[in-house]
């Protein structure tokens, strides 16, 4: 555990420039939005909207962080891989440091939005519709999904990266890239095929959670055109589908770790 902790600290230090770049980019974007908002008489509203938009974009944070980290490690593979820790430990150290960096920038975005909602008068009317418990439950639900999606994307990326690295010393860069891409498309296609089957429904359609339950208490009205309807599926999701996706991601992670231990060449 001590070795892993020191490895994690190294990974966090390695990823520090990427994290600082993200924070600076965030400050610049929100700052510019705020500056132009004030200049054009819209107050800090554009800055808050910019921060609000940046929150869901964090689903891509971890994949970018991992890409950067693995790129930096590319010329140091003889250092990174010459380590008695198992492959999953090496990858987990990068993953956890990425999650930590993501949490810091996500926290910054949320703070800006939170302060904005509290102090910007233009947003006060929001509280006529939403109550704080609604905002918190919806926010938490969104954050959990952002983290899960970010992890999902990142582990798929790790899987494809190890496949690419495994093949590149044997087949060359271009062919390996094409094969990795083709494998990704094939796996996504197969997963989509599976998602349309009855077996998939049986496996995943349990633990129904209604969106209405999460956003209950929201006090807003909307009308539909005559004859139109909202499909039942869009108002609910299943815990089973989360577990199913988690199992796939864990399998991909374990395969990646095995390939890292046995097949990657420096």
């Amino acid at each position: 555990m001590d070795a892993w902790w020191h490895l994690f600290k190294k990974e966090f230090r390695l990823g520090m420039p990427a994290m600082l770049f993200t924070i600076i980019a965030f400050v610049v974007i929100v700052g510019l939005a705020g500056y132009f908002g004030i200049k054009h008489g819209q107050g800090t509203e554009p800055a808050i909207i910019a921060a609000l938009i940046l929150i869901p974009i964090h689903v891509f944070y971890l994949i970018c962080y991992m890409f950067d980290s693995l790129q930096k490690e590319r010329k140091k593979l003889h250092l990174w891989l010459h380590n008695p820790l198992p492959g999953y430990s090496l990858l987990l150290a990068k993953l956890v440091s990425g999650l930590m960096a993501m949490t810091i920038t996500l926290f910054l975005c949320c703070v800006v939005v939170f302060i904005g909602l509290n102090f910007q008068n233009d947003f006060r009317e929001i509280f006529d519709v939403f109550t704080w418990p609604n905002i918190i439950s919806t926010g938490l639900f969104s954050l959990i999904n952002i983290y899960l999606l970010a992890l999902d994307f990142c582990i798929w990326f790790i899987f494809l990266w190890v496949i690419y690295r495994m093949l590149s010393r044997r087949l060359g860069g271009l062919i390996s890239f094409i094969i990795s891409l083709a494998l990704f498309c094939l796996l996504v296609y197969l997963e989509n095929l599976l998602a349309k089957t009855h077996v998939y429904d049986v496996l995943t359609h349990w633990g129904r959670i209604s969106i209405v339950d999460i956003v209950s208490g929201f006090n807003f009205n909307f009308s539909l055109d005559p004859g139109s309807h909202i499909p039942a599926d869009t108002t609910a999701f299943y815990l089973g589908s989360y577990v199913f996706e988690a199992i796939i991601v864990i399998i991909l992670f374990l395969i990646s770790s095995w390939i890292l231990d046995k097949k990657i060449e420096v």
Partner: peptide, 30 residues
């Protein structure tokens, strides 16, 4: 042998790449 034979093997690479953000002492400690 696989990568994890590192527990029994100390390897000095011909490559000249290290983690540049560390000092000598930090590298030794790491």
């Amino acid at each position: 042998v696989d990568r994890r034979i590192a527990s029994k093997v100390s390897y000095l690479s011909e490559l000249d790449e290290y983690y540049g953000f560390y000092t000598v002492q930090q590298t030794i400690d790491f």
